[in-house]
């Protein structure tokens, strides 16, 4: 039985959208899977919109485009409004500090990633990793350890904080 998993992560520049996607793609490699990622963004370095489209599969990936997201992580209102139609059949996670959700998605969960990052880890920068931990909770295609390994490798500094954030997100039960 082959599978194809589509993950869409979007927010604004500086939130770590690309790093989160890279971590997921690399984790797939560590899990012995195929992965692709397309990154698109505005011309701004910070503050503009950023989107990572990640596809993970146990076979050769044809299209790298996310058309039906299994998981959609929205880190800004603009991202939520712009891409929520792609996640009609998937799970949407949205940053509760920054997004006011609409009622028309069947499966969506608010995640207080930013708030938790500040309160528990003393830095807003770890919010993306808390959200990634929560994504990993909903993935059954690779072990959590694969994502931990990827995040440790990609963290030039602050690996400890990132791994703590990842664990925090993974163990977070949202309703």
């Amino acid at each position: 039985m082959t599978f194809r998993l589509e993950v869409l992560i979007s927010g604004f520049g500086g939130q770590g959208v690309v790093l989160a996607g890279r971590a997921l793609g690399l984790a797939a490699v560590h899990g012995g899977l195929e992965s692709t990622m397309l990154v698109s963004h505005g011309t701004e370095t910070r503050g503009g919109y950023v989107r990572s489209q990640v596809v993970i599969s146990d076979e050769e990936i044809d299209s790298p485009v996310v058309e039906k997201a299994d998981i959609f992580l929205a880190l800004s209102q603009a991202a939520y409004d712009r891409f929520k139609h792609l996640a009609k059949n998937g799970l949407t996670l949205y940053e509760s500090d920054l997004v006011v959700a609409k009622e028309d998605l069947t499966r969506q969960l608010a995640i207080p990633a930013r708030k938790l990052a500040i309160e528990e880890l003393g830095t807003e920068l770890a919010a993306n990793m808390i959200a990634m931990g929560q994504i990993a909770r909903h993935l059954d295609v690779m072990p959590f350890a694969a994502l931990q390994k990827a995040v440790a490798e990609l963290s030039k500094r602050g690996a400890e904080t990132n791994l703590a954030a990842l664990g925090l997100g993974f163990n977070l039960e949202l309703v």
């Binding site: 996607g21 890279r22 490699v29 992965s35 692709t36 990622m37 990154v39 790298p64």
Partner: peptide, 9 residues
Amino acid sequence: QLVTDGWEA
């Protein structure tokens, strides 16, 4: 651009 800027294993 999608080939050069795109990511893949």
